[in-house]
Computed example of a mutant assay.
Amino acid sequence: MNFQVTVLKILVSYPNGFASMPALKRDMAILATSGPDWAARTKRMGARVPELDLFTQQLVERLNGGRRITDKGRAVLELMEPRPTANQVQPEDTRAPELSPQVPAVSLPVELRRREPERLGRRRCSRVTDG
């Protein structure tokens, strides 16, 4: 896992790019144990900026018991993020299709509700006459 890329990714996910040290350490521990996918991803991203140094390049600043990503840090992270090429397939839309306005969505349940009292009435009558 590329430690410096991980710090940038964590900080950018927080409001105003600021995370306290305990929060940053917790998130680092979670990502460090999340499996080989995260490690491979941060390694690939880090390879795009091999001389990455968070503090000497002023990508992250120390503030009030925590760290905050700078605008420069956001720009470097943006450069490291992979971009889809024209040849890559766009992810398909996984939203549920919308119903046509011509298809009444509640017609079947209404029909079932109309039949239900009839069935209940018959049962009651048969029970009364049986007993």
Rank of each mutant, 00 (worst) to 15 (best):
L8A: 01
G35H: 01
M45P: 02
K9P: 00
D53N: 15
R68N: 05
L11E: 02
R115V: 00
E111I: 02
A75K: 10
P15A: 10
S13P: 06
P97S: 03
R83P: 00
L63R: 15
R127Q: 12
Q4P: 00
A23D: 13
R127D: 11
R74D: 09
P82W: 04
L108P: 06
T42S: 12
E51T: 11
P36Y: 00
A23N: 09
Q57A: 04
L52F: 02
I10K: 02
G17L: 01
V106E: 12
N16G: 03
S13C: 01
L108R: 12
L59M: 06
K43S: 13
E61M: 14
T94L: 11
P36S: 13
L8W: 03
R124K: 06
A23F: 02
M28R: 13
N16M: 05
E61F: 07
G131D: 12
N64A: 15
E51S: 13
V49N: 05
L99F: 08
Q90S: 15
A40L: 12
V49I: 14
R119A: 02
G131W: 09
E116M: 02
R123K: 09
R41H: 07
F3M: 05
K9M: 15
S126R: 14
R123V: 07
P36E: 14
D93L: 09
L77T: 04
L52M: 09
D37K: 11
P50T: 01
D130M: 07
V49A: 06
D93T: 06
V76R: 06
A19R: 08
R67W: 14
G65W: 08
D37Y: 09
A47D: 08
K43V: 07
M21N: 08
L8H: 04
G66I: 13
A29W: 06
M1C: 00
V12T: 03
L52Q: 03
